[in-house]
Write a protein that binds this DNA or RNA. Structure first.
Length: 679
DNA sequence: CTAGGGTTAG
């Protein structure tokens, strides 16, 4: 009998079989005939066959048991792991093949570089790059654009540019890598410049290039330009797929154009989880909390599991209005279905602390097995807004014992924590360490924090000296901080200077005009006062309507100032009247200093007593059991009078009342506030 | 015929 003869090439034969059983049969024959142990190219083809039918385990078994592995076998395995997004496996195999002396080719290098990119492992990536150059792939387009992408994703755009300039005959992929790289590093003008260069070289942008431009528009808030990119795509008949549509949804949502964004979203024929998340996060970021939460439910009803990003947006929405109950249930959802990583963990820390439960936030922080810079910064900021400056400082000291380097955000949180707690010396100490030890150039925000801290402590002259020491022109935030301190401490001379500077810089925020006019009123500078009022009127600047939100039995209730539309209004008014009576008996005197209008005193008293937080507090007291703690979230700052009144109320009803205003928390208990009247 | 550039985020 003639001995069994294999064909010269096994590949055509293997390609004919698309089922596991036939491939396994050939596999068996290879083993029994001893072919397998000779380790020819047949083994690699067998590996590829198993991968073709998606059976990575069998492929790996063949691969591991082969006495010899050729590049093709390695590449087949690497492609499989790359598709399955297992970058660590890809790199392991890459290392192994170098040890075994199999020379990687262009596709090996490309995939290995891609794996490093996804791990942001610049060191390994650079080793691979060196090896690729040694193997003669320096001018390979695939390897080249992979190296570019590695640098771009690791935020090394200048390095990427150097590589880019040396690639001969750059193709559109290389150009795109540079464009999106610049966009994602926040260097939008460089991205646009690169795009123009590409056009000059006669290369037309495709869909991916346009996508990069849309992202650029989203980042700088230029919805008009985004619209024209969209138009350009339609005219040029470029395919507008889910990814592009999602970016357009994001562009409009991020910039507060929810109408446009949801119209775009509703018109999509296919949506994926990312599209949903883009819209939801846009809603959450722009304060459209109700819409965000509705969409979250709708997303599920369309059969999508909530993913990392949509959950984070949900948590952000809860944070904004103090929706503890929903925040908690999202926490439960996460624990059941996902791993608590530092990103979600940080969102939870933020949610708990913004919902008034700082200790829960700290507990989540302790639970995190790995904490990154943002986790620490968030925790420090949380202590800050709750007025626990010393805790914030001690956490910062702990942080300096880790490998993490504090950044500008760390110091911004720290300085504002000191300022909320009136820790003047500590604040100055932090500022000095930031500049001299960590070599961080203080930004406008840092200066504003320190000026605020000094000025509110009454050290107005020191604050002025600090401003004079700035190397850049002080911006509006710095002058506003100085003015506020001057207003509190009645430092009229410096205050007038600050007020003048503030007005020169043309604030776009009605709250700032209110501060300036209040200052002039207190200083009895009636001409200036009238001037400011006129500017406010002429620019159509209206006071942002104040509202407060309170959670009662797991539901949110919002109140506007003088809100009479509420079904329980009679009861609420009755409760407030009763409280006022008791408060007055205890020595409360209404403080109308902060009411702007030129009104009769009696009307002013009525106005402060109908501020939205009072209504929310009364409603909360009426509808919750004795001793229950209340959390009120307000969109503006608490006024002096409401602050005073809430102290009395907390004593009268013997409850803890937590008020979160736009800047910080006030914990009222037993007639005192945690801020110590310092805010 | 394989391989490089793309959407959301604390």
């Amino acid at each position: 009998m003639r001995p069994f003869q294999w064909p010269k090439d096994l590949k055509p034969l293997l390609l004919r079989f698309k089922d596991r059983a036939s491939i396994a049969k050939i596999h068996a024959i290879m083993i029994s005939s001893g072919t397998f142990d000779r380790g020819t190219s047949f083994n690699g083809q067998l590996v590829a066959s198993y991968i073709r039918i998606g059976d990575i385990e069998s492929a790996r078994l063949v691969f591991d048991k082969s006495p010899h592995r050729a590049v093709d076998a390695y590449n087949a395995m690497i492609i499989a792991y790359s598709r399955k997004v297992c970058p660590l496996e890809v790199i392991k195999l890459y290392k192994q093949m170098n040890l075994e002396g199999a020379r990687p080719d262009s596709s090996t290098f490309t995939l290995a570089l891609k794996a490093c990119t996804s791990l942001l492992d610049l060191d390994m990536g650079e080793k691979i790059r060196t090896n690729a150059v040694k193997c003669g792939y320096e001018h390979d387009m695939f390897v080249g654009s992979s190296v570019l992408n590695l640098y771009a994703k690791c935020g090394q755009m200048d390095e990427a540019m150097g590589v880019f300039e040396k690639i001969p005959g750059r193709d559109i992929v290389a150009w795109t890598t540079m464009i999106t790289g610049f966009v994602q590093s926040g260097r939008v003008s460089d991205a646009i410049w690169i795009y123009r260069q590409m056009q000059k070289e006669g290369i037309e942008g495709d869909g991916v290039v346009m996508l990069g431009l849309i992202q650029a528009c989203a980042n700088i808030g230029d919805t008009k330009m985004g619209l024209s990119v969209h138009g350009h795509m339609i005219r040029r008949d470029l395919r507008i797929d889910v990814v592009v549509q999602t970016s357009l949804v994001d562009l409009y949502a991020k910039n507060g154009q929810l109408e446009l964004s949801s119209r775009m979203f509703r018109n999509m024929s296919h949506r994926n989880a990312v599209s949903w998340s883009a819209l939801i996060s846009g809603c959450a970021q722009n304060g459209f909390v109700g819409n965000a939460l509705e969409l979250l439910k709708e997303m599920q009803s369309f059969g999508f599991e909530l993913d990392l990003v949509s959950l984070m947006s949900g948590l952000l929405a809860c944070s904004q209005v103090g929706f503890l109950k929903l925040g908690r249930s999202i926490h439960g959802y996460i624990m059941k279905r996902l791993d608590l990583d530092q990103v979600l963990g940080t969102a939870l820390i933020d949610m708990y602390s913004k919902c008034g439960f700082l200790s829960n936030g700290r507990a989540v922080f302790e639970l995190l097995s790995s904490k990154d810079l943002i986790s620490w910064n968030t925790m420090i900021a949380s202590y800050g807004i709750h007025g626990q400056g010393m805790e914030a400082l001690s956490l910062f000291l702990h942080m300096t014992e880790t490998d993490l380097k504090p950044d500008h955000a760390t110091f911004a949180s720290l300085l504002s924590a000191c300022s909320h707690s009136g820790l003047v010396e500590e604040g100055k100490y932090c500022f000095d360490r930031m500049v001299y030890e960590f070599n961080i150039k203080p930004s406008e925000k840092h200066y504003a924090c320190l000026v605020d801290l000094l000025a509110r402590a009454g050290r107005v002259e020191e604050a002025r000296d600090l401003i004079d020491s700035m190397t850049t022109d002080p911006g509006i935030a710095v002058w506003v901080a100085l003015l506020l301190g001057c207003h509190i401490h009645r430092k009229l001379l410096t205050g007038e200077l600050a007020a003048k500077k503030v007005l020169e810089l043309k604030p776009d925020n009605p709250g700032i005009y209110a501060l300036v006019s209040n200052f002039y009123a207190a200083a009895r500078k009636w001409d200036e006062f009238a001037g400011v009022r006129k500017v406010m009127k002429n620019t159509g600047m209206k006071k942002v309507p104040g509202y407060s939100v309170v959670e009662v039995h797991g539901k949110l209730h919002a109140f506007l100032m003088e809100d009479k539309s509420h079904p329980q209004y009679e009861q609420i008014a009755g409760m407030l009247e009763k409280l006022e009576h008791e408060m007055t008996a205890m020595g409360y005197i209404p403080n109308t200093e902060f009411v702007l209008h030129n009104l009769e005193e009696e009307v002013k008293v009525k106005m402060v007593c109908s501020h939205s937080e009072r209504l929310a507090i009364a409603f909360g007291l009426l509808n919750t059991g004795l001793g229950t703690r209340l959390l009120i979230t307000k969109n503006l700052r608490v006024c002096r009078d409401c602050h005073e009144a809430t102290k009395f109320i907390s004593k009268i009803v013997n409850r803890e009342i937590v008020v979160r205003d736009v800047k910080r928390f006030h914990h009222f208990k037993d007639g005192v506030c945690s801020c110590g009247d310092y805010w």
